[in-house]
C-alpha cells in the first residue's frame, strides 16, 4: 500500500508550486508529511524521493539533521522541556527528573503505552514564564509538579 496517498500527493504538488525547485520545497514537505504521520518513516521518504526525484540518503540526512523533524516513532504527546539557563534557574531540571520518574522513561524515550515522548529543548523563547514546556505545539508556562500531574491526566483523557 502506498505510504503517501493521493490527497497528500496533491498537497505536495501544491507546496512545490511555491518554490523555484524541488529541493527548496523539501523542508515544508517534510513538515507536512510529519504532521500527517507523526514521524518520517523510511518508506515515506522512499516514496518522497520518487516524487521529488531526489536522492533518498540526501532526504534522510536532511530529516535527521533538523531538531524539529523526526525519523523515529514518537508518542501521541511529544513533550519538550526547556532546560536552558533561564528555565533551569526556575527549576526545569528537577521537573525533567520528575517527569522521567512519573512516565518511567528517560529523556529521548517514549512511554511503553506509546502516549508520551520526553525531550529537552534549548530555549523555547518563553524565558519569562519558566519553567516552560511544549506539549506537541502548545506552550505551558510556569510549570510545577502539580501542573505536570494535571497535564498528564488531561492529555490522558483526550
Amino acid at each position: 500500500m502506498s505510504k503517501i496517498n493521493t490527497v497528500q500527493k496533491e498537497k505536495i504538488h501544491k507546496i512545490l508550486k511555491y518554490y523555484p525547485d524541488n529541493q527548496s520545497a523539501l523542508l515544508p514537505i517534510l513538515f507536512y508529511l510529519q504532521d500527517e504521520n507523526r514521524y518520517l518513516d523510511d518508506m515515506v521518504l522512499w516514496e518522497l524521493c520518487e516524487i521529488l526525484d531526489m536522492n533518498f540518503q540526501f532526504i534522510k540526512d536532511v530529516a535527521e539533521y533538523y531538531v524539529m523533524l523526526r525519523t523515529q516513532p514518537v508518542g501521541e504527546k511529544l513533550i519538550r522541556v526547556c532546560t536552558n539557563v533561564a528555565c533551569t534557574l526556575c527549576g526545569s531540571e528537577e521537573l525533567v527528573e520528575y517527569m522521567e520518574e512519573k512516565l518511567r522513561i528517560k529523556v529521548g524515550e517514549t512511554s511503553k503505552d506509546g502516549k508520551y515522548s520526553l525531550f529537552t529543548a534549548h530555549c523555547l523563547a518563553c524565558c519569562n514564564n519558566g519553567p516552560a514546556i511544549q506539549v506537541n505545539d502548545k506552550y505551558y508556562k510556569h510549570i510545577s509538579r502539580k501542573d505536570i500531574d494535571r497535564l498528564l491526566e488531561t492529555t490522558d483523557a483526550k
Partner: peptide, 11 residues
C-alpha cells in the same frame, strides 16, 4: 529564527 537563550521578543 529566534533561538538565542534568553530572547523571547521576536515571538
Amino acid at each position: 529564527s529566534e533561538g538565542e537563550p534568553g530572547s523571547f521578543k521576536d515571538r
